[in-house]
């Protein structure tokens, strides 16, 4: 199924394991990596204190001559750039998993309200409990999972597919969004400022401790995603066929949803809700690579590219005022969604 129409395929074997991919998707992945690296260096260079590319490389190597430049690069900008890449990977992979499970490009965590639910969980931690960063991450995770469970119950007996799922998710998301606003209004002034800033979806205040936490979580969850990706490709053939080749369809679906919600939640916990990346990254990756399903690696890289690029725009568009990256992805993603719908509907 996934091999149809991919052009020339390359197979790597090592013992019992093999990896198969098309040349085009390999080139696309390499090119995306390159652009991400370039954007990362640009992200390290620009800011209120401009640093040259040479100074950036020197600072990264630990041999910077300008202590102020080294400080800005390694302590302020590097964690932000790394966090942007990690958040992009998490959102891209999560979106891809959801879209493969629901068989619908609109079956993304941001459309379905899971991102908003994760935000609700995190806000309850920030405002009501007053928890630390770990507690906020846990709150986001619980909020996201509960929202996923709620949506699943509400669309019963139809399952996590189809238009009904999307519309129910939109309704749940709107309601949770209103609850989030109420929570912020209820908070004390200091907590409300933290919460409001966080709710806009921003990388402005991300430093190393949170980036490190994010890195560990994204690494573990990405590994889980890769292990079930191959089984997910079989789902469009139908549950019976999948079972016949040894894939327990329902269990794979559930694990995919749990992994995806976890990825959205850790990303949301660090930056706040960032709209539309989970929706757009898999679709962009699929079109670039020319494959029928998005896969895992492509959406991860595309997601990193989208978040990093949007964050640069957010920083510089109205400088010195910094926009929240979520606002930029919201505008870009909303426009992309309009195009996606128009193109999709024109064909039918």
């Amino acid at each position: 199924m996934s091999a149809i129409g991919q052009g020339r395929l390359v197979t790597w074997r090592r013992g019992h394991r093999s990896v198969r991919f098309s040349r085009r998707s390999a080139w696309v992945a390499l090119a995306t990596c390159g652009v991400v690296l370039v954007l990362a260096v640009v992200g390290l260079m620009i800011g209120d204190y401009d640093v040259s590319a040479g100074q950036v490389l020197a600072a990264l190597g630990g041999g910077g001559t300008d202590p102020l430049a080294s400080y800005f690069v390694t302590e302020i900008r590097l964690p932000r750039v790394v966090a942007a890449i990690l958040v992009g990977i998490a959102l891209g992979v999560a979106g891809s998993l959801f879209q493969m499970v629901s068989g619908n490009p609109l079956g993304s965590p941001d459309i379905l309200g899971f991102t908003t639910g994760a935000a609700t969980g995190a806000l309850i931690q920030i405002i009501v409990v007053g928890g630390d960063t770990d507690a906020v991450a846990l709150g986001a995770l619980v909020g996201g999972l509960l929202t996923a469970a709620l949506v699943q119950v509400l669309v019963r007996p139809h399952g996590l597919t189809g238009t009904r799922l999307v519309l129910v998710g939109i309704g749940v998301g709107s309601t949770l969004g209103a609850i989030n606003t109420l929570l912020v209004a209820e908070a004390s002034l200091v907590a409300a400022q933290t919460a409001a800033q966080w709710l806009a979806g921003s990388l402005n205040t991300v430093l190393w401790p949170r980036t490190t936490m994010l890195a560990v979580a994204v690494a573990v969850l990405s590994a889980c995603a890769v292990t079930i990706a191959r089984a997910l490709h079989l789902l469009p053939l139908g549950d019976d066929t999948a079972r016949a080749v040894g894939v327990p369809a329902q269990r794979i679906r559930t694990s995919a949803v749990v992994i995806a919600v976890a990825m959205v939640s850790v990303a949301t916990a660090v930056t706040g809700p960032i709209a539309f990346v989970a929706l757009a990254a898999p679709q962009v990756a699929r079109r670039l690579a020319g494959t029928p399903t998005p896969g895992i690696v492509g959406p991860a890289l595309t997601g990193a590219l989208l978040v990093l690029g949007s964050d640069l725009i957010a920083q510089r568009l109205l400088a010195p005022t910094e926009l929240a990256v979520g606002v930029v992805t919201g505008a870009l993603g909303g426009i992309y969604l309009i195009v996606l719908l128009a193109v999709d509907w024109r064909k039918r």
Binding site: A275, F276, V328, G330, A331, G333, G334, L337, I338
Partner: peptide
């Protein structure tokens, strides 16, 4: 869906 997409873009631009 069309309305959700359009208002998402419009709201983000308004915020900007």
């Amino acid at each position: 869906l069309a309305g959700v997409a359009v208002s998402a873009a419009l709201v983000a631009i308004t915020q900007t």
